[in-house]
Measured scan of single mutants.
Amino acid sequence: MDVCVRLALWLLWGLLLHQGQSLSHSHSEKATGTSSGANSEESTAAEFCRIDKPLCHSEDEKLSFEAVRNIHKLMDDDANGDVDVEESDEFLREDLNYHDPTVKHSTFHGEDKLISVEDLWKAWKSSEVYNWTVDEVVQWLITYVELPQYEETFRKLQLSGHAMPRLAVTNTTMTGTVLKMTDRSHRQKLQLKALDTVLFGPPLLTRHNHLKDFMLVVSIVIGVGGCWFAYIQNRYSKEHMKKMMKDLEGLHRAEQSLHDLQERLHKAQEEHRTVEVEKVHLEKKLRDEINLAKQEAQRLKELREGTENERSRQKYAEEELEQVREALRKAEKELESHSSWYAPEALQKWLQLTHEVEVQYYNIKKQNAEKQLLVAKEGAEKIKKKRNTLFGTFHVAHSSSLDDVDHKILTAKQALSEVTAALRERLHRWQQIEILCGFQIVNNPGIHSLVAALNIDPSWMGSTRPNPAHFIMTDDVDDMDEEIVSPLSMQSPSLQSSVRQRLTEPQHGLGS
């Protein structure tokens, strides 16, 4: 029994001894940790006062410096006190997940390849973020970090730009207890964004957000305005092209109309020559008939004078003969009235020469109109080809070629109108001259024959008349068809009918 009691006491004593040793060891460790923490804080404070003595007594600045020092320690893998190029590049790629850190790398180092804690602190103090207000930090939280649900907490804590380094380091107390961020992804996102802002300055999105919006609005307005302008120009170009094509079609119709007119003019001239020949034959025939009538009257007179026994018949025959003579005298007077005045042959040749010289100047004017028309046609064809290209319509709308071609078409039409008026006036004037003179002027042997017949020096006439060419005029020349008939041919039928009527009546009387 005593043995059992003793054994229990030994065990209890051993447990108490072991517990005492454990408590003693724990207290010694706590004392050691407290001592090392105090030494670390003293070291940080001493270093901060050495680097930035004016701010070393500010608790907030001291906390920010400690956060900057921890960031530098995080980047300094070899713990030599300086962050070199390789260490910063590795940190950007692995910790901040930048696949192309060239720009960030140059911004961080600049011309200094080794970055110490002092360099990093001075860079942070010179950053724009260091002077941010609470509102600017909240704006950064909303737009860049995209965590607007913590806006009220940031405003309540009055977190300005000075506190940004403390957000950039992993601090459970700061993010969990103070900021009350329960979501781990939110804490990590805030820490990475803050670290990027401390090292490289304010984000471009935050700094140029309004400018970007303004430029976007301006670009949209310019784009819409450009599209509207292109649409208006395209519609104007199509309308202008439609008008130009309509004018061009009018020129083609006028060309065909003048071609038909020239054919009718040539045909009328041929008919005029035929009528002139018929007139000469008719006059000769009338003279022959008059002579035959005179001979017949003389023969009847002689027969009736030789027959004294038939006085009654003779008297009747003499009366008939007197009627025939009276008819012959009237026919002769009618014929003489139409051919009583004949212009000198020299006057006819001079008038024919005048007509040919006028035709020369008319042909020159006509050729100029043809050239203008050809230029207008070529310009229209070029515009047609340009319209078939990809940007042809837009190019035509913004060039002056369309207006130039339109002006050329209008100029050609005006020139053709002048040529039309000149042709109309010339035909009418020479027709009236032919009526008054009674001989042909338009139809003549040609300028060379006339110059030779009148003994004129050929050098006075200049160049010879160009051959009539096919040219274009407007449709108002169609009503000239009825005026192209020679006035002499219009007189011939009346002359034929009057003479024939007077010759036929006596012959019928003789026949009876």
Rank of each mutant, 00 (worst) to 15 (best):
D78R: 15
D95W: 00
D95S: 05
E90T: 01
N97I: 01
N80T: 03
V83N: 14
H72L: 04
L74C: 04
Y98V: 02
I71W: 12
D84T: 09
D82M: 10
D78M: 11
G81E: 08
N70S: 04
L96I: 08
D95M: 06
V68D: 02
E87G: 11
F65G: 07
V85P: 08
R69V: 07
D89P: 09
E86N: 03
D84F: 12
L96V: 03
F91W: 01
N80A: 10
E86A: 02
L92S: 10
E66D: 05
D84K: 09
F65V: 07
D84A: 07
E86M: 15
F91G: 14
D76T: 15
R93V: 12
Y98K: 13
E87D: 12
L74P: 03
L63V: 00
H72F: 02
N97K: 01
E87T: 12
L63A: 00
I71H: 09
F65I: 07
L74I: 05
F91D: 14
S88N: 12
E87S: 11
E87I: 09
A79E: 09
N80W: 13
D77V: 04
N97C: 01
F65N: 01
V68E: 06
G81A: 09
D78E: 07
G81L: 11
N97Y: 00
L96W: 05
V68F: 13
Y98Q: 13
F65A: 13
N80M: 11
V83T: 14
E86L: 02
E66Q: 02
L92W: 09
D77N: 00
V85F: 05
E66V: 01
L96T: 15
Y98L: 01
F65C: 10
A67M: 12
V85Q: 01
L74M: 03
A79H: 05
A67K: 01
L92I: 03
S88R: 03
A67E: 02
E90P: 08
D78P: 13
V68K: 07
S88I: 06
D77F: 05
D78A: 02
L96C: 04
N97V: 01
D76Q: 12
D77A: 03
R69H: 06
D89R: 06
L96S: 09
L74F: 13
D76A: 03
L74K: 07
D78N: 02
V85G: 06
E90H: 07
D95P: 15
V85N: 14
S64R: 01
E66W: 06
F91I: 06
V85K: 14
S64I: 06
V68A: 01
V85D: 04
R93D: 14
E90W: 01
L63C: 00
F91E: 15
V68G: 06
L74H: 08
G81F: 13
I71G: 03
D77W: 07
E86T: 10
S64Y: 15
N80V: 10
N80G: 10
E87A: 09
A79D: 01
N97W: 02
R93C: 14
D78C: 08
A79S: 03
I71P: 11
R69F: 13
S88L: 05
E66I: 14
S88W: 05
M75S: 05
E90C: 08
S88V: 03
D78I: 15
D95V: 03
V83I: 07
D89K: 01
R93L: 10
K73I: 06
E90Q: 01
V83L: 09
D76W: 15
N80F: 11
L96E: 09
L74V: 07
D82V: 07
V85H: 12
E86G: 07
L74R: 04
A67P: 05
G81H: 15
E86Q: 13
E66N: 12
F65P: 09
R69A: 04
L92M: 06
N97S: 01
E90A: 01
A67N: 08
D77K: 09
K73W: 03
D82W: 13
L96Q: 12
D89L: 05
E66L: 04
V85A: 05
E90R: 04
I71Y: 14
D76H: 04
M75I: 04
D77M: 14
M75Y: 09
V68W: 08
I71V: 02
Y98W: 03
E90G: 04
L63F: 00
D89G: 03
D82F: 00
K73L: 06
V83H: 13
M75G: 09
F65Y: 09
L63R: 00
E66T: 05
N80C: 09
H72S: 07
F91H: 12
L96D: 06
Y98S: 02
D95E: 03
M75C: 11
S64E: 02
F91S: 09
E90N: 08
A79L: 04
D95K: 05
R69S: 07
M75R: 06
F91R: 15
S88F: 02
D89N: 02
V83R: 12
D77G: 05
K73F: 03
D84Q: 15
H72T: 10
G81N: 13
L63N: 00
S64W: 00
E66S: 05
N80D: 05
E66C: 10
E94T: 11
V68P: 02
E86H: 10
Y98M: 00
V68Y: 10
M75T: 07
D84M: 15
F91M: 15
R93S: 11
D82N: 09
D84C: 06
E90V: 00
S88M: 07
V68N: 07
E87K: 10
E94V: 01
Y98I: 11
E86V: 05
V85W: 04
I71L: 03
L96M: 02
M75D: 10
N80P: 09
N70D: 00
K73A: 04
S64D: 13
A79P: 10
D84P: 15
I71A: 08
F65E: 11
V68L: 08
S64G: 00
F91A: 13
F65S: 07
R69C: 03
V85T: 03
R69T: 14
E66F: 07
N97H: 02
D78Y: 11
D89E: 02
V83D: 14
G81P: 14
E66P: 00
D82L: 07
D84G: 08
E86Y: 05
N97L: 01
G81D: 11
R93W: 08
M75Q: 02
F91K: 06
D78Q: 14
E66A: 01
L63H: 00
K73S: 06
D89C: 04
L96A: 09
A67F: 12
N80Y: 08
D84R: 13
R93Q: 12
V85M: 15
N80Q: 11
N80S: 03
E87V: 09
A79W: 08
K73T: 00
H72N: 03
R93G: 10
Y98A: 04
E90S: 02
V83C: 15
A67Y: 06
M75K: 01
I71E: 03
E66Y: 13
N80E: 10
L63I: 00
R93P: 12
S88P: 09
R69G: 07
K73N: 00
L74D: 00
N80H: 12
I71D: 12
A67I: 13
R93K: 04
D84H: 11
D77I: 11
E87M: 14
S88E: 07
H72G: 12
N70K: 06
L92V: 01
A67S: 06
N97R: 00
F91T: 15
I71T: 01
D89Q: 01
